[in-house]
Design a protein around this nucleic acid. Structure first.
Lengths: 137, 137
DNA sequence: CTTGCCTTTGACGTCAACGTGAGGTTTTAG
DNA sequence: CTAAAACCTCACGTTGACGTCAAAGGCAAG
């Protein structure tokens, strides 16, 4: 397969594939004229890379994890990174959940005209500047 | 409160607060000499802004949502954006879950030396270039 | 008054994951 | 055989949320 085919099947741009190769995430054979040639499995690999990117892993982390993924056993440091990223993802999910809850509160608040129900979201009128009576005097 | 206090209590940098103000997300009174002064509630507001940033909302969206959040009722367009962002967050959570599952599979695979259990993750050795026997000739 | 930390504006740097041409070669379709 | 489509390698541009440095001014303590 050439780069355009892989790109289309994996749902990314050819540029992205060249970028992945530049980052060491993806290898390719070359035709005598220099064009990239991929095996079918490249599509799967690209999709996995995409998943990890979507999960917020930087390319450097993916680079360190891919050997571990390929061989099935990684160095202890890679394993540690693996667990750390897993934890980070879990935390990110919690953050998303809390933000979504905040938006849901706003939605509820917009649906029921009861502005008193959620004082945490209402801004108390911004008081004008007062010379801040000196704490200890 | 001055900018440093708010920054510390909200867990962000002073630079971030100036940036928020620049983007219209945060207002401030000024002392006669030009220094920013915030009410206590600013801390809460900054934390909310941070939540939304963490959830992946761009500053422009937050800017359009904050009036809605402050007043408790938004324009229909703001309401639409609200729902759209909520959906986006839900989708992002699903993506994170799927990526975490992928990592979990790798972790399992690293723990149990049974490389055959997960063929989807194993790279079939990259075959060297073959002139791709012409399909029709 | 001086010392030392905090704050101001302004402007440029960063980092990531590509996008977007330029300018040229290769492959494919008719 | 020719024209179009796909590909190649540079190499600079983009976007967002700040970081960072510079030069200057503010503010409480000793």
């Amino acid at each position: 397969m050439r780069i355009g085919d892989v790109a289309q099947r994996a749902g990314v741009s050819p540029r992205a594939l060249r970028y992945y190769e530049e980052q060491g995430l993806l290898t390719s054979e070359r035709t005598p004229s220099g064009q990239r040639v991929y095996p079918d499995a490249a599509v799967e690999r690209v999709q996995l890379i995409q998943q990890l990117f979507t999960a917020g892993l930087p390319s450097r982390s993916i680079l360190r994890l891919l050997p571990c993924i390929d061989t099935g056993h990684g160095s202890p440091e890679a394993f540690e990174l693996l667990a750390a990223e897993r934890d980070r993802i879990t935390a990110a999910m919690a953050d998303l959940a809390s933000a979504r809850d905040a938006l849901d509160r706003v939605i509820d608040l917009a649906n029921h005209p009861t502005p008193e129900h959620c004082p945490a979201l209402r801004e108390p009128a911004w008081a004008p500047y007062k010379p801040e009576p000196v704490t200890a005097h």
